[in-house]
Design a protein around this nucleic acid. Sequence first.
DNA 1: CTAGGAGCTGGAGTCGGCTCTAGGTCAACC
DNA 2: GGTTGACCTAGAGCCGACTCCAGCTCCTAG
Lengths: 130, 130
Amino acid sequence: MAEVAAGLSIGQVAERTGLSVHALRFYEQQGIFVSPVRRGAAGRRVYSQDDVDWLEVCIILRASGMPLPALRRYTELVREGAGNEEERLALMREHHGRVTDQIGRLAQSLDLITFKVGVYEDLLDQNGQV
Amino acid sequence: MAEVAAGLSIGQVAERTGLSVHALRFYEQQGIFVSPVRRGAAGRRVYSQDDVDWLEVCIILRASGMPLPALRRYTELVREGAGNEEERLALMREHHGRVTDQIGRLAQSLDLITFKVGVYEDLLDQNGQV
DNA sequence: CTAGGAGCTGGAGTCGGCTCTAGGTCAACC
DNA sequence: GGTTGACCTAGAGCCGACTCCAGCTCCTAG
């Protein structure tokens, strides 16, 4: 607990989140942190648990295909604080729609793929039985 | 009907498939056609209905995230003809697994996104009622 | 006191999948 | 006979999202 309270190094955050240290610096440069990352001795980044929690949200949004500019915009809105919930909602709704569509498209593609797998399985079964 | 029997130009195929003429030439160069695309007067590409049918399969595989090298490999297998169904099956099964995983991951992400949308909706509802 | 390891910066490089450009051929219309 | 417009080739360029590199600073351990 004391270890976390003291803040995390970039390496520790990389380990915890699965992001590379490169990606963490890149995200920071891209404005993907709600509050500026603190700096410790010799200018080293010191991450708080909040930073890590936020990164975990970001990772999920990225994993679902949200582009960095949208993620940056969302971060800005959160940074600005209460009062812009309409825009946050709009942004999330749009992303929700995109993800839903994408799942639909993948499910449709999966039908063809499943069908093809079946075709080859049948074909090989028949040959096996001859 | 006669119009189709005569073969299609690259522009017509682009229109029918939604791929760009650039993409069609690129796919050809990448070996994504089972049989070489025929050429007509002045070296112009002439596509058969089979070509278009194959492209439609390719489009679905690409839409589900199959990388071009895998698609090329699959094309090669089909080009070689009967006898390599095990490898085709393996390839399709692998892709099936990837797509299933991807749908799973997206569905999980969608949970968070749906939750966030709910949070903002509630927040705005409350404000509206005050 | 030096060697290693983690971190820093700015900027270049990579990769996948197209997309576009330059410069040309050809057929058809006015 | 001049202008479209669709097509051709080879190759350059682009975009997103990292990833890596050079050259530096620190701290710690042997």
